[in-house]
Computed example of a mutant assay.
Amino acid sequence: MTRKEVIANLKETCQALDERKTMLENIISALELEEANEVDEEYDNADADDGNETEVMESDGSENI
Rank of each mutant, 00 (worst) to 15 (best):
M1I: 02
M1A: 08
T2Y: 00
T2R: 03
T2L: 04
R3Y: 12
K4W: 08
I7D: 05
I7K: 11
A8I: 08
A8N: 08
A8E: 11
K11L: 11
K11E: 13
K11Q: 14
E12W: 12
E12A: 13
E12Y: 03
T13K: 11
C14Y: 14
C14Q: 14
Q15P: 02
L17W: 09
D18R: 06
R20Q: 12
K21D: 09
T22R: 09
M23H: 15
M23L: 12
M23Y: 12
L24T: 05
L24K: 13
L24G: 04
N26P: 03
N26F: 05
I27G: 02
I27T: 14
I27Q: 13
I28H: 08
I28M: 13
S29E: 09
S29T: 07
S29L: 09
S29M: 11
A30N: 08
A30L: 06
A30D: 07
E32C: 01
L33G: 07
E34T: 04
E34F: 04
E35K: 15
E35A: 15
E35I: 11
A36D: 04
N37L: 12
E38Y: 12
E38A: 15
D40Y: 06
E41I: 06
Y43H: 03
N45W: 02
A48Y: 14
E55N: 04
E55T: 02
E55A: 02
V56M: 01
D60I: 00
D60T: 04
D60H: 04
D60W: 02
D60N: 06
D60P: 02
G61V: 01
I65P: 11
